[in-house]
Structures are given as structure tokens and as C-alpha cells.
Amino acid sequence: MLEVFGRHPYRDLLVWTVLLVVVPFLPLDDYVLHILTLFLIFAVFATGWNLTLGILGLKTLGHHAFFAIGAYASALVSHYFGVSPWITIWLGALAASFAGVVIGFPILRIRSMPHVAIVTLAFAEIVRLVLSNLKEITRGELGFWGIPPFDPIPIGARTIEFGLGNAFGSFAVAAVMFVGVHLLLLMLLKSRSGLTFLAIRDAEAAAESLGVKLAAWKIFAFAVSAAVVGLSGAVYAHYVLILTPSSVAGPDMLISLLAMIIVGGVGRFFGPIYGALLLTVTSELLRDFGDYRMLLYGALIVIFVFAAPAGIAGLKPASWRKRPGAASKPAEAT
């Protein structure tokens, strides 16, 4: 558990929260807030994926499909039926979660990790193709535009506006989602459920022999993981206001998110957040060298797999061990 959450997970989350509350009041220009908003959205995406990939140990490769489903479901319903995005983002999360359960069932039947990887990848490809083929509804690769931003909220004399170009409001929505999702997941994972997930990851047969209902737990993990990723997709849709199937469900999205999780630390609760921050910022710095972005992501994945398989988050415990006194304490269950 220590390895997954670190020593004080709630304190760490509190630090993040305080930082996020302070940031909008710093004299930053809107461009910085825009990048941080993207970071927060991708951090939630990465955390959601890490739930199955790292914490449950099911090596799924198709979570960009849930991001796309959440994004498109919310965007389509709000556009065609005029429903407020404040409501449709939950429909997006629900749709993604439902898809997660549907694809979870074939996966239950297979214990071979390569099969899980390929089935989830094929599922993502199906989702991308369906979104790009249903041109009458989604406009295919031309892009689905006309997505409404979140409805403005009046607070006293001011009105908070959202969507691209309204940096403060957009950052606030992303930050609230970031803190909310991580707090709820932390509460879930620090409870018995989290122990069960880790037991399934570390010794599936042993967990089953102790009465853990593998099928139900895996489907549950899939539903939660897909819902989180779908929610991040929905918030993304109402922020950038235009979607194309290849940008949200294409291979670039898969690679970017995989890089964030691997660089941050597979199976560490806070790992994907560090990875998302580092890669979102670097890829913005490299914006002028557009062609190099994927080159960098590919290289980073290879380098981290070889040199630091536990990612940035995994670099921490080593420094704790060196700290005097820490070694004399009884070891916590890991």
C-alpha cells in the first residue's frame, strides 16, 4: 500500500488542492492557465486508466475509447438536444462506464495478458471507426463543432464563463474535477476495495481462493475506470469545443497517455499526475517542433521502461529509505 499511495496520500492531495486554489490568483497569463487546464484533464484521464492498468493489473490498451465515448456522448447530447453540459458530462461518464462493462465481459474470460491488450486495442479501433463513419451525426474526420461550453454561473456581481478563451472558468472546472475524482478514488482505494484490487493484481488465484469474486470486482473496476476516463473526456469536449475521432480515439492519444502513466509510474496513485504534468508542459514547450512530439513520447516510454520502470513516483521511496529513523519503524504492508 505504501508503494501505491506514498506515506500521506490525503496530505499530498491537500497540497495539490491548495496549489490549484492559489494558481488562478497568481499573475499568470491565460496561456499558462490553458496548459494547466489540459494537464488537469489528462491527469484525470491517466488516473482513471491507471486504475485498471496499474492498480488492478489488467493491461488494457483501449482506454482512449472511453475518453472518446465520454467526449462525444456529452457533446452530441448537449448539441442536438440542448441539454446543459453540466448534466451531459454525467451522461458521458455513464455511457463510457456502460461501454467499460460491455468490453469487460469478454476480458473476464481471458487471463492471458496479451489477449487483454489486443481485445481492448481492437475495441478502441472499432469506436474510432464508428465515430468517423457516422458522418451524418458526428461529421466524421471533418470534426464535430458547435459543442456548447458549460453554462455561465453568476456569482454576485461577476459571471464565470467557460470554454476555450475563458481561462479562469475552464481551469476552475478542471480543478474541481481533478480534486473531486482523486478524493473519491483515494477513499475507494484506501478502503477494502483498494486492498481487493491489489490482491487481484498481486496474486489472482490466491485472492480467488480467499473468496474474492474476481468477475464482479473486475467489472466494477472497469466501470469505475471507464467512468472516470469518460468524465475527463466530456469535460475536455466542452473545453476545446471541437472533436475529431482521430484526435480523441487515435493512436496519438493512446501513446500520449501511455507515456504519461509510464513516465509518472504505473500503479502509483499519484504517478500519472506527475507524468501528465511533465508531458503536457514539455509538449507545449515543443509546440514549435510539432514533429518531434511523438518522437519524444516514444523515446521517453522506452527510456523509462528500461531505466526507471517505476516512473517518477517510484523514485521517491529510495530517498525515504535513506532518511535516518525511517528504517527503524516497522515496515508497513506494501
Binding site: K59, L61, M113, P114, A117, P251, I255, L258, A259, I262, V266, D291, Y292, R293, M294, L295, Y297, G298, A299, L300, I301, V302, V305, F306, P309
Partner: peptide, 28 residues
């Protein structure tokens, strides 16, 4: 990588990284 305990996923991740690296490399 095969010498590692978690080689199955390490190999998948490393070859995915290599794949995108070679693609962008070829593009350059």
C-alpha cells in the same frame, strides 16, 4: 527486458514506444 519479473508488460510498453519513435523518425 525478458529477464524482469514483469517483462510481459515492459515488452509491450517498450515496443509501443519504439514503434512510435521509428514512425516519427521515418517521418523526419
Amino acid at each position: 527486458l525478458m529477464k524482469r519479473e514483469d517483462w510481459a508488460f515492459s515488452v509491450i510498453a517498450a515496443t509501443i514506444g519504439l514503434s512510435i519513435f521509428l514512425q516519427s523518425g521515418a517521418q523526419l
